[in-house]
């Protein structure tokens, strides 16, 4: 890529990026009771980053953040599998989830769900894998163009 010079797109996506990220966070956290969840959340973040790649190029994104997306995806899978394992410690079957309500100092009565950890793994796996596919392919495109 690197051929992009669309000022409007670049300016808009700079702002839109954060809006999308906020939306993704909302989707992810609210997923327990409202539409959303780890899968969509991760995918929305991936699409936000894809927008940046399209508006600028891969190199600029890599300069800003040096995340290795393969590692991210694998970390997600490990977290997801790990939560499954951790239920074994409490003598529960693999991947058993639980929930309850605790009193937090400021937030008051808050519901906690162990599934959110698993969902984090899902989100990271989806985000990492989707982006690793997109970045490797677009890297390939760059090499071809040269």
């Amino acid at each position: 890529m690197g051929l992009n010079n669309d000022v409007i797109l670049q300016t808009v996506s700079k702002v839109a990026f954060f809006i999308i990220l906020a939306f993704a966070t909302h989707l992810f956290i609210g997923g327990h009771h409202n539409p959303g969840g780890g899968f969509v959340g991760g995918l929305v973040v991936a699409s936000a980053l894809t927008l940046l790649i399209l508006a600028f190029d891969l190199k600029s994104l890599e300069e800003v953040s040096k995340i290795n997306y393969q590692t991210l995806g694998i970390a997600g899978v490990i977290i997801a599998v790990g939560t499954g394992m951790s239920s074994l410690i409490f003598h529960e079957p693999f991947l058993n989830q639980t929930f309850g309500i605790i009193n937090l100092p400021i937030l008051g009565e808050t519901e906690y769900v162990t599934a959110i950890v698993f969902d984090t793994g899902v989100a990271l796996a989806v985000l990492g894998t989707a982006l690793s596919i997109i970045t490797t392919i677009s890297e390939d495109v760059c090499k071809w163009r040269q």
């Binding site: 997923g31 327990h32 969840g37 769900v113 969902d119």
Partner: peptide, 14 residues
Amino acid sequence: LAGAKNIVNSILVD
């Protein structure tokens, strides 16, 4: 069962 109001999500994660 899972403390979730979103059935789809609770199916997915639980």
